[in-house]
Structures are given as C-alpha cells and as structure tokens.
Nucleic acid binder design. Sequence first.
DNA 1: GGCGAATGTTAGGCTATCCTAATATCAGGA
DNA 2: TCCTGATATTAGGATAGCCTAACATTCGCC
Lengths: 244, 244
Amino acid sequence: MKTPKRSHLHLEDSPPEEDTLTGPVEDYLKAIYEIGRGNVSVATNDIAQKLSLTAASVSGMVRRLAAQGLLSYERYRGVMLTDTGRRAALRTIRRHRVIESYLSHALEYPWDRVHDEAERLEHAASDELVNRMAAAIGEPVVDPHGAPIPSREGLMDETVHLSLAELGAGFGARVVQVSDDDPEMLRYLGELAIVPGAELIVLAKAPYDGPITLRIAGTKLSIGPALAAQVMVQPLSDPDAPSH
Amino acid sequence: MKTPKRSHLHLEDSPPEEDTLTGPVEDYLKAIYEIGRGNVSVATNDIAQKLSLTAASVSGMVRRLAAQGLLSYERYRGVMLTDTGRRAALRTIRRHRVIESYLSHALEYPWDRVHDEAERLEHAASDELVNRMAAAIGEPVVDPHGAPIPSREGLMDETVHLSLAELGAGFGARVVQVSDDDPEMLRYLGELAIVPGAELIVLAKAPYDGPITLRIAGTKLSIGPALAAQVMVQPLSDPDAPSH
DNA sequence: GGCGAATGTTAGGCTATCCTAATATCAGGA
DNA sequence: TCCTGATATTAGGATAGCCTAACATTCGCC
C-alpha cells in the first residue's frame, strides 16, 4: 500500500545497499517498528524517547531515512516504515533476538544481561553468524524473554497478547513474554519465577489498580499492576484451570 | 579488579577511558601494536597502509591519540604506544583472537572467514562475553591461525618465529602460525595442509628466491617464497640441537 | 654537504550524528 | 473561532573520522 516511488534504477531489493546501514540507522528502524508494531504511523517524539535522543535529532534523521526510502514521512505527521524499512527493521530484530537466545543458551548469560550485549552485537554480526547461532541452538522461535524471533525470511509472529494486569481473577494463564529492557525488573521477575512458559493462576485482584495476587510455581505472591502490565500471558482454556 | 602495576606510569589510567574507546581508535592501537611488536616506534605511513587509510588521516588521529595519553608522538618521528595504549591494544587483540577461536571451535566457521567477522565483533563484544567464549572452548592460547592470545591480564607470548622462507633445505619444522588477513591465501594454505601444528620438512630451496619444495602431511609440494614468508615455523630438533 | 626522493604534516572540506535554542504547527477547550 | 499548551521542526554548531592537495621535513647519496 505504500511502496514509495523510487526513482532511479530498479535495483532495490537485490543485494547491495542492505548491509550498508549504520548502527544508528538500524536503531531507528528497529525503534520505529517496535513502537508502531510495524505498520502504524509513529510520532517522532516517541522515537526520541525510545532512543534517548532529542526530538530535534530525530527530525533530522527521519528526513534522511525518508530520502533513502526506508520510511515515509510527512512533516508534523509522523513516520511509517516502507517495505524496505520494515525488512531492515525485522532483520535487526532477528539479529538481536537470536543473539540474546544464543548468549542465554550457549553461554549461560543471565537473562537480565543478554539485552545490552545483544544491543551492541546486533550491528556487528553478519547474517551468517546469526544463522549459525540460530542453528546451533535449534532454531529458537522466541528469545529468552519470550519475544518472537523473525524468520530468516523476515516473517514474525505478530500476535498481541493479554497482559497479566488484564487477566481477571480466577483465570489461569501461561506467561508468554516479559518486557526486556529493564535488567532490574528482569532479575525481580526471575526471582518470582515469572518467566516465559510458567503457568499461573490469578487468585485475586484488588480494585482501583491494587495488587494482583497469584499462584505461580506453587507459590503465592502479589505484584503491582505496573509490573503485571509488563508480563504478557496466554490464558489457559478454563477459568478453573488445574493449578497443580 | 585492576590497579596499575607497572612502575613508571602515574597518569590518569584509573577509571574511565578504558571502554570509551571507539572502534577506529581500537583499530589504530591494534595496528600500531602489531606493526611495532608492542614497543617500537612506528611510522605513520605504515599505520596508514595497514588500515587502508591515507597518511593524512593517520597524522590527525595520531595527534588525538597522543593527547589522550594512548601513545607518544613526535612529528616526523613516528609513534610509540604508552603503557595505557599497549594495554588497550592487547585487550583488543585478545578479543579478536578469542572471537576467532570461538567462531572456529564452537560455530564451525571456516578459518578463512573468522578474521573478518572478528574484526567487527571485537569492537562490540564485552570483556565478559569474550571471557565466557574463552571459557566455553577451554581457554585457548592460540587462535585458529596460530597467533598467541593475550591473557585476561594482558600478557602475550611475544616469541618471534622463523618463517618457512628462512628455513634451510633439509630442516624439519612444525607450522606454528600463518598470516591471517588474506582469506584466499588461507584457503590455499588449508588445501595444502599448511596449518598450525602440521609438521613438514624442507626438501629443496631453489636459489634466487625460487620455489621451496617440502613434504607435509605425506605430500610433496612447492610454494613460492612470498607465500613461505607468511608461514611461521618452529624448527624441529632434527640433527642434534634442541629448540632454543 | 647539498639536493631530490621519500616520508610526513597541515589546510581545508565532507558526512554522519548528535546537541541546544528558537520557531513553527497542531489540536482541544472556551 | 481563537488561544494556548503540546508537539514537532529548523537554525546553527559540535565532534569524530575520513579525504585531497599543498606544503614541510628528513634522509640517502654522490
């Protein structure tokens, strides 16, 4: 729906200018993808916040990215990735998540530290390396935080999950994903055994944004709604699920 | 974990500027170390050639590095690493060689491709990652090309080896190291079984820089002196003498 | 012992990316 | 409709690295 006009030669999706993206450019594309879920218009200020840059810097960069055909941009109207930009973003996301998975599985990195390391390596690792890493650990489909890994072909599971905060009392669910960018929070979640794959049941929800009480891994505990909102879950079939 | 240990250095090497080195700066320091074997004055033009930059660029950069205390520099007189610079260089070299080894051992990278990948990763990998990689493959002491790996403490075996071109006819030797920056040459050496650890005997040396005939892995072959100069060997104690 | 070739440096410019400060546009309430 | 706060952009400048072209220094040689 939005492939922009590309004037000169028809050489765009073949091989060349893909790997010439700089680290910062990859970061912008990834941020835009993650904010907009891939195909929604994104505010420049949100990009600035996500990347910890000033809005002015983003305005400038976004103009250049548009000139390169990586996104479409109308002043004061936000930006949207083009197909080319989206592919580049997904390639970077794949690198990041494969690297995280590899560090975790093959090198026993603690899950609260894989993100920062991957953040730097994702710009330096070749596709070949990333693919070898993926193969070495059995082609994982999610990273250590449960985030889906785009395929080599650039396809990613876009399922939107319920957050634990939205789950009603009495419901059982399996943790599918947790937010990955706060190491401290990750350590805490790990201590609580709130990790992807874990099953839980919501025992009670205090009103007015009160704490949520749940049983997980045989333990009963309470967490605040802000934390619960960072935990994505897949409800289990029955409201009266067997909590084992 | 480290306090300065060398005696005659009391400048500011305490906390900050260690990890703040940029990729290009690390490349300069590494190149200077490798050209000068660590403590010899190095010509700016040689640095330029090694890094494929113009001499002018090197003059400028070298001035900045001197201002940062990473090397000492006198115009028209070449450059020498300071202790700080040497430590930084060795850290980068360690990263590079550990990464090469890891790629080769753990991910089955072919030996002619590890160099380029490591060249990019060495600037992005943390010390923790590098140390985990080293541990995972048994703390290797040489990289896949036979080059020594500096220890975590920054010490490296500085033994200077004989090249195959310098070995007299009739002498036996073990290959200890080959030059690592030409993939094509590495593939060729691999085909000939000229790899670190292999034993060979020089059968004949044609005069006037003529070809060198040798037996290796049960095969007789001839190589030119330019190639032989890229192969470092340890003579075997064949007639009488033990190695030095 | 001076001169030209070899070597090395400075001058001036370019790109990418970031910043701060000033300005422009948009959108919602009276 | 108009105003104002929120949002976004431009203007102008900094830094790191790189380049080419012009200039400076050193050195080897007769």
